[in-house]
């Protein structure tokens, strides 16, 4: 079966880790993840500048490793990202900002990608809050 996952919370929220464990379990069970969509504060998980305390799980790093390993389509909402200072090279140049913190494997795109994923997948599962 095909899953689309939307993550609304930052990497330090328990729900982001829950989304990651759900995604890992879905792939391990032989299912497909057609798209991961990071929305609202979820865009912080894609930032390369997040530094987790040494005694805590680095969930953003785990997301990055997971997306890279399985070559998943991981879309970061561009409007949510820009307002939170999560920029790729193109956007940093466009808005003349001094830093880039959204390298591969993430892709900046619009909310339409979430809509399309919801149509393509058999199940859309959203994770957010606590």
């Amino acid at each position: 079966m095909k899953f689309a996952l939307a993550v609304f919370s930052p990497g330090h929220a328990p729900s982001s880790r829950r989304a990651l464990l759900f995604a890992q379990a879905a792939l391990a069970s032989g299912h497909e993840i057609v798209r991961l969509f990071f929305y609202q504060d979820g865009v912080h998980s894609a930032s390369a500048n997040v530094v987790a305390p040494q005694d805590e799980l680095d969930v953003p790093a785990q997301w990055r490793a997971f997306v890279t390993e399985h070559q998943l389509d991981a879309v970061v909402c561009i409007a949510a990202a820009l307002r939170r200072g999560v920029l790729n090279a193109e956007e940093a140049q466009r808005y003349q900002r001094p830093a880039v913190n959204l390298p591969a494997p993430w892709e900046l795109s619009g909310l339409g990608q979430l809509h399309e994923a919801a149509q393509t997948a058999d199940r859309l599962v959203c994770f957010g809050g606590d």
């Binding site: 759900f22 890992q24 299912h31 199940r123």
Partner: peptide, 17 residues
């Protein structure tokens, strides 16, 4: 557990968080 969570989401027509 999480594999059962995945299966549970498929046992229903949709998931509302």
């Amino acid at each position: 557990d999480y594999p059962a969570f995945v299966q549970l989401s498929l046992d229903h027509d949709k998931v509302n968080s």
